[in-house]
Structures are given as C-alpha cells and as structure tokens.
C-alpha cells in the first residue's frame, strides 16, 4: 500500500458517499445515469467474486464488501425508492455497445483462460468505459449539478491515482499488470474533458454547462 493507492481508494469511497448523499438529501436521482450505475454494480460483482476464494487483507475484503453493498444501495435508490425522479429519457446510451466489446475483448486478451480470471478481466475493461452513459447524459442535457460534478471528479481521480500507484509500483517493486494499466489509462483519458470543465468552471463557482 502506498500513498497513491490509499488516496485512490479514499477518492473512490468519497465519490460513492457524495452520490448516495446527493440522492438521499434531494430525494431525487435526477441527472444520474442509472445505466452507469448498473455497469458499476456489474463491475464490482464480477471482480469481487474472488472474495470467496482468496483473502488478501482485512482492508481489501472490507472495501470489496463496501463497494458491493453501496452499488446495490445506489441501484435500489435509483430504480425503486426514487424511481419517479429518474431521468430515463436522457439516459439513452445503449449499454450493449459497451458490454459486448468488453466481453469479447476479455475472452481474447487475458492473463489466463479461466472463469475467475476472465470475469476479472471483463470487469477491468467494463470499468474503464462504465462512466460513458453518465458522461453521455451530461452531454445530452448540456449541464450537470455541482454535486454531480464533484461526484464525477472524485470518481475520475480514483483511477488517475491508481495510475500513479502503478508507476510507483513499477519503480519500487518491478510490479505491473498491463491489462489493468491500459484500461486504467483509457478510463482516465475518458475523464480528461470533464476534468478540464470541472477545473475551469465548477471550481470557479460556475455551473457546469456545455457550449450549445
């Protein structure tokens, strides 16, 4: 565990807290893509199946359970409790366009052709693009609430910090995992446009509004 990794995980937890708090306080999930949240739930479910087969540390298992639990809770808030506020007309990204290529890619590009390994690989590929329905929704409505922007910034920072962690681990431990690194880079690059808007607009107390 290094400082980048710890900060990354904290950013991830922060993102989840911001999202749940926003939905709960406003009693509304307006502006939140349910499809991205479905994809994230799928990502955690596929990746953390290993919680039953391998034990790394108390921290590791706790975080896995936290991500599984909170993603289930988020889906419950969006699709059950506050369903009337869910903006499904703007959440029109076709997730099959992400699921199918990720599934095919994980069958061909993996470390080992075994069930758990392929599911892990699939989750890594899927996570890298899982935010696209949310970014698509922001682009479609042309704006995002500040709190949604904070959520996206925290969530984007998480994988960017993991990239720093991988650079550190490569130097310090000669350790690297090409699949995770390339997917992590793709994931971070997808946020770049948003990061730019966040720094130039939201941090100056302006609403995140895209040019028409």
């Amino acid at each position: 565990m290094n400082i980048f990794r710890l900060m990354a995980d904290l950013a991830h937890v922060l993102a989840i807290v911001i999202l749940l708090h926003k939905i709960w306080k406003s009693r509304s999930c307006a502006g939140i893509s349910g499809k991205s949240q479905i994809l994230f739930a799928l990502v955690y479910f596929m990746r953390y199946l290993d919680i039953m087969t391998s034990y790394v540390s108390f921290y590791n298992s706790t975080m896995k359970l936290l991500f599984l639990g909170t993603s289930g809770a988020t889906l419950n808030l969006i699709y059950r409790k506050f369903k009337p506020s869910y903006d499904h007309n703007h959440d029109s990204f076709r997730i099959a366009y992400l699921l199918v290529p990720c599934a095919l890619l994980s069958l061909f590009l993996n470390h080992e052709f075994s069930v758990l390994e392929i599911l892990w690989t699939f989750s890594i590929y899927l996570e890298s693009v899982a935010i696209l329905p949310q970014l698509f929704m922001v682009a479609k409505t042309g704006e995002a609430e500040s709190i949604t922007s904070h959520y996206l910034f925290a969530l984007g920072s998480y994988r960017a910090l993991y990239v720093c962690n991988w650079v550190y681990r490569y130097i310090a431990e000669s350790h690297f995992d090409l699949i995770a690194i390339i997917a992590g880079l793709v994931q971070t690059i997808l946020y770049c446009d948003f990061f730019y808007l966040y720094i130039t607009k939201v941090l100056q107390n302006r609403k995140l509004q895209l040019p028409a």
Partner: peptide
C-alpha cells in the same frame, strides 16, 4: 520483472 495480476488491488 514478473507480470502478475494485481489482485491485491481493488
């Protein structure tokens, strides 16, 4: 250099 899945990560 050994390549090994980073399963200790989240």
């Amino acid at each position: 250099i050994h390549i090994q899945p980073a399963k200790d990560e989240l």
